[in-house]
Amino acid sequence: MVWKTTIQHLLRRAAPALRPDPALAKEMRARLEAAAAQRLGRALSIRHVAAGSCNGCELELRATQTLIYDLTQYGLSFVASPRHADILLVTGVSTRNMAQALREARAAMPDPALVVAVGDCAVDGGVFKGSPVVLGGTKALVPVDLVIAGCPPNPAEIIAGLVTLVEAHDTKMPPKPKILPGMA
């Protein structure tokens, strides 16, 4: 049945495949290569924590992993534990009930680590600003290195933000040694 399905699939594919804007993808790859390959060895792992979002930002974060945006082509990928992560990506307003979990997730990450606040809520609480149970964005709980605004920001904006982050942080993330100790 597999070959039959495959042949049918090849024959009946009607819609032209959507691709990322080639110029944009090329530019972002080039920028990332320049910055990340040297500084980070091209492996950036992201841990996402939702700290009081409406789940709209999560939808767009998931969209960064689709065939169209394909986050991993830039050397960025989501991981299942803060222990494995270089970047803590936070969405949501920072509710009082998530404060402890968010702080603990940051503390569980190996340093050096970067924190990115994604979406208007994570910037400063967004429309929920002023509620007594809203602490007012990611910065209320952990130091933030980059904000990506939008309600929600679209997948291309999220990826562009992450690439910019890698470019900008040459002082915080020390360059990887070219030759490992003991190998010379």
Binding site: C54, G92, V127, F128
Partner: peptide, 30 residues
């Protein structure tokens, strides 16, 4: 864990103003 006090935020506002909160109760069903 995601409690933001939405009902309290909507009180005292006009429906037109409060619609922004209704749109953000659950983003997948906005």
């Amino acid at each position: 864990y995601e409690h933001k006090g939405i009902l309290a935020l909507m009180r005292g506002k006009s429906p037109s103003h409060a619609a922004r909160f209704a749109a953000r109760v659950s983003g997948d069903a906005t």
